[in-house]
């Protein structure tokens, strides 16, 4: 049973970065914007987080610094898209590539040395804050004036603007906050899930998975948490599969296949009835 306990702990630890990144993106998408650069933001958070951890000797401020670095990088999305009106899809993709490259640059400075790791346990302060954030953002979205404004902007930017809502401030603020959370998520991946070591490709597509989780969680904070728990469990099943003699490469594939399959099921089942914020992933 020790085996099972280990897997549950790993699943919960995997949930933390997915939920953090997914939660930020969900809030941003509620305001009608999509940032495809989550993976790049997480990579920068991971690299800068490890660098900061090495210099400070303490993983907790390192998490915050990783988040701040990603928030700074998100200006490459906020200024072109929200201030200047460039296409958000292209800008998001460019941010993904720029973030990946910058992370490699910053990560090379670690020289492979480890930062003091954050001992991953489901009861650590980061996990507790994640849970608190889910509650807080649910209250924010559904029980506050700001939440009403955010959702109004997400349904129709033009009408919200006409009603005198500060569209750019709302979207820009959320984009920066979401990037901060993605950066913390990336730093958490490096410091807690990879023993404080950075390597190129460390975020392993989890930023993209988080984007999928926003859809699976149907743009609501509790939904994103639930979807993250499922994905976290799937990602931790990798060790279980490998232990049962499944080829490592095949075990690596399982979570991506599962996300793909659940996106398919989700679209088939809910696609016709339920409705995302109308400014997001807009189709004919």
């Amino acid at each position: 049973m020790a085996d099972l306990h280990g897997i549950v702990v790993a699943a919960l630890a995997n949930t933390v970065p997915l939920a953090l990144a997914g939660l930020g993106e969900a809030l941003l998408e509620r305001s009608g914007r999509v940032n495809l650069g989550v993976e790049g933001l997480m990579a920068v958070g991971a690299a800068v987080g490890v660098l900061a951890g090495i210099h400070l000797g303490n993983p907790y401020p390192a998490l915050v610094i990783g988040g701040l670095a990603a928030a700074l990088l998100s200006l490459l999305y906020v200024i072109p898209v929200i201030v200047l009106g460039a296409d958000q899809i292209v800008a998001g993709l460019a941010l993904f590539f720029a973030g990946t490259a910058l992370a490699d640059l910053a990560g090379a400075a670690t020289g492979g040395a480890p930062a003091p790791p954050l001992v991953g346990s489901p009861w650590d302060p980061v996990a507790a804050s994640t849970l608190a954030l889910v509650v807080a953002s649910t209250l924010l979205l559904y029980r506050s004036w700001l939440g009403v404004e955010i959702r109004a902007v997400g349904e129709s930017m033009e009408h919200a603007q006409a009603r005198g809502l500060r569209v750019a401030q709302i979207q820009g603020g959320l984009a920066i906050a979401a990037a901060f959370l993605a950066g913390v998520a990336g730093a958490y991946m490096a410091l807690a899930l990879h023993n404080g070591r950075w390597y190129s490709g460390i975020t392993a597509g989890w930023g993209w998975i988080a984007l999928g989780l926003v859809i699976l969680g149907y743009w609501s904070p509790p939904g994103v948490l639930l979807a993250s728990l499922l994905a976290g469990a799937l990602l931790s099943s990798r060790t279980l599969l490998a232990a049962h003699g499944v080829n490592e490469a095949i075990a690596d594939m399982a979570p991506y296949l599962a996300v793909l399959a659940s996106l398919l099921v989700m679209s088939l089942v809910a696609g016709r009835r339920a409705r995302p914020p109308s400014m997001v992933w807009r189709r004919e």
């Binding site: 460039a86 292209v90 460019a94 941010l95 590539f97 720029a98 490259a101 910058l102 640059l105």
Partner: peptide, 12 residues
């Protein structure tokens, strides 16, 4: 990665 960075920023 420097090349990738230049490419991404040029596109942006």
């Amino acid at each position: 990665s420097m090349a990738l960075l230049v490419q991404a920023l040029a596109v942006l």
